[in-house]
């Protein structure tokens, strides 16, 4: 129910209890996806009237113990303590939705999965022993059951509001599983790959951003991660025709969604083609098994 602007926040616990309880959680991430919620300036105060924001440290110091009706989870799991914490959050949440590439596909920090993490530590810290970290960055779905994964680096605010509305109404979110190409068509953007020969990941990338990059005369760089059933081998052939070598194609699939199974497979194919870090392929295989076991979008 709605509360008027003048209602005292502590006046009516029964009113608060009647509203669905929303929690927002942070794991390893840049905060950009949580910020996307705060960037819904026009919707923020109406939303705060519709739901009880029970846990959202970025916005409030007032916290409420679980259970929660809807938990939004940002970030990937990179420490032992976080691996335990996500289990506790799942247990306290009726519905759990991941927001963004880190929570859904491990994020840019999943590049460690292809490297020796001790080497990473030594590159950044003089005394690595002070720092506690896991050797991998894994998506939330590698640890607990996830009710919905909202892709994007960062997520799109309109899609976020749709997901929140849908779960509060008890329905599935109406989120397209098509590619960025469909959004270019809808927007009337001339295809940058066809018209200008600009390499573009749009044909294999999940829609949702509104096809921003091509509208800015740039090829899509895949920050929303793979669409459902992408044909990456066909795209890689086109990218090769446009002059990209194996090293470059390997790189474009190893950015913000490197651990998403379809992009992982594409970067592995490029590596086997003689490109990037051929010595890392063992590590990739291990991580692929971990992630694919939990992800229904795995390219078979």
């Amino acid at each position: 129910m709605r509360t008027s602007a003048s209602t005292s926040p502590s006046a009516s616990p029964s009113t608060a209890a009647a509203r669905p309880r929303l929690a927002v959680w942070k794991f390893a991430s840049c905060d950009g996806c949580q910020l996307t919620l705060l960037n819904c300036e026009d919707e923020l105060l109406p939303l705060a009237a519709e739901v009880e924001i029970a846990y959202f440290l970025e916005a409030s110091s007032a916290t409420v113990a679980g259970p929660y009706d809807l938990s939004l989870v940002e970030g990937s799991v990179t420490t032992q303590a976080d691996a335990q914490r996500i289990g506790e959050i799942r247990a306290a949440s009726r519905r759990l939705v991941t927001i963004g590439a880190c929570a859904t596909a491990g994020g840019i920090q999943a590049l460690r999965n292809f490297a020796d993490v001790d080497g990473y530590l030594a590159a950044v810290y003089a005394t690595p022993a002070y720092v506690s970290t896991l050797s991998t960055s894994t998506p939330i779905s590698a640890h607990v059951r996830v009710d919905f994964e909202l892709q994007g680096c960062p997520i799109d605010s309109r899609q976020l509001l749709e997901v929140i509305s849908a779960f509060l109404a008890g329905r599935r979110p109406a989120i397209s599983s098509a590619s960025v190409c469909t959004e270019c068509k809808r927007r009337g953007t001339v295809c940058v790959m066809v018209a200008h020969g600009t390499p573009c990941l749009g044909p294999v990338t999940h829609a949702g951003c509104g096809a921003i990059c091509p509208a800015w005369h740039r090829g899509c760089y895949g920050c929303f991660g793979p669409m459902e059933s992408p044909n990456t081998p066909a795209l890689v052939r086109e990218l090769t025709v446009l002059g990209m070598d194996d090293r470059e194609t390997g790189r474009v699939f190893r950015t913000f969604n490197a651990a998403a199974p379809a992009f992982l497979a594409a970067s592995r194919d490029a590596a086997e083609g003689g490109g990037i870090h051929a010595e890392d392929t063992d590590a990739e295989d291990t991580d692929a098994e971990d992630t694919q076991a939990e992800d229904t979008h795995a390219e078979q």
């Binding site: 840049c30 490297a115 530590l121």
Partner: peptide, 27 residues
């Protein structure tokens, strides 16, 4: 938790530094 940007930038292209490091902070 450390995210190792300085390490993961090694081996990347000079054209990628801006987009990769922007992911250090969404604010």
């Amino acid at each position: 938790p450390p995210r190792f940007f300085e390490a993961l930038l090694r081996g990347r292209a000079y054209t990628e530094a801006a987009d990769i490091t922007s992911r250090i902070c969404g604010i």
